[in-house]
């Protein structure tokens, strides 16, 4: 065996493979299982990194193909995040695990937000909720959580990794204090999910201030943003809504 605790490692690899299998990512699952063989051997094969990279390519393909809508968006998300985290690992290995622990509170919050949007996603099927208005309002609520609770947390996590690649370690306090506007200036190129941030915020504000109007006949939602002090309209746009498309597909990406 490769390590004294290789049996435990094998169990963990099998658990990982099973997790992807349950998700329906069968090729990725198969690819993960193939790494068990290394644990049975005496040394790490020289093509290990190449093999791992191939696994990422398989995973990226299956991840992008999960839905018929927005495949390019999903692919780009995957590639950008992979590139940032890979750079951070190569810069900090073998201490990368410590950095993962440091950002755990952010990952935890990310998970909480994801649970809410996940529950909404599961219920967005027109067979489950027949009322169009209700589906539209739920999608709006999901947008609010995605922009406020997911995108900003993920932006903080990626910003942390980007700084690691430069040899800097951002403190958790500083990470808490920063916001997406500042992060956007520091992560170049801007990750796809942070693009058109101003528009996403306008829509979020319209939802938060109940200034959005759903028209079930045309299946569109109008979002209006009015500056409180001046009364000036800063945003007024009508976007197509389909219960099959999530807010990020409201043609603003």
């Amino acid at each position: 065996m490769l390590y004294p605790d290789s049996n435990r490692r094998i169990n963990d690899i099998n658990d990982l493979a099973n997790l992807f299998k349950v998700k329906g990512h069968l090729q990725t699952s198969k690819g993960i299982s193939s790494f068990v063989k290394i644990q049975h051997g005496k040394k790490i094969p020289s093509n290990f990194l190449k093999k791992l990279d191939q696994l990422f390519t398989i995973c990226e393909g299956e991840f992008a193909a999960t839905t018929t809508i927005g495949q390019t968006y999903r692919k780009t998300c995957f590639q950008e995040i992979k590139a940032i985290i890979f750079s951070a690992i190569s810069r900090t290995y073998p201490k990368f695990g410590q950095h993962m622990l440091a950002i755990y509170p952010f990952v935890k919050r990310l998970r909480q937000g994801r649970e809410i949007t996940g529950t909404i996603a599961d219920w967005m099927d027109p067979k489950k909720i027949k009322d169009k208005n209700l589906r539209a309002y739920l999608a709006c609520f999901a947008h609010l959580i995605i922009v406020e609770g997911l995108f900003d947390e993920l932006a903080r996590i990626l910003y942390y990794f980007v700084e690691l690649t430069k040899g800097n370690s951002v403190s958790v306090d500083d990470l808490e204090k920063t916001n997406v506007w500042k992060i956007q200036r520091k992560i170049k190129p801007t990750p796809i999910f942070l693009r058109k941030w101003r528009e996403k915020k306008y829509i979020r504000n319209a939802i938060g201030h109940a200034q959005f109007y759903f028209d079930p006949r045309t299946n569109t939602i109008r979002f209006v943003n009015i500056q409180e002090k001046t009364g000036k309209v800063t945003y007024d746009k009508t976007l197509n809504f389909s219960s099959l498309n999530w807010p990020w597909n409201w043609k603003i990406l």
């Binding site: 990982l16 993960i32 998300c77 695990g97 949007t117 099927d125 997911l150 990020w248």
Partner: peptide, 30 residues
Amino acid sequence: MELEDSVEAFYYVILILRIYDLTLSKNPYK
């Protein structure tokens, strides 16, 4: 229906990276 794509991608990348750790690290459970 899928969850938010960027978050999902983040989790998948982190999960697969565990293979890196389990194969190369002397103590991946530290």
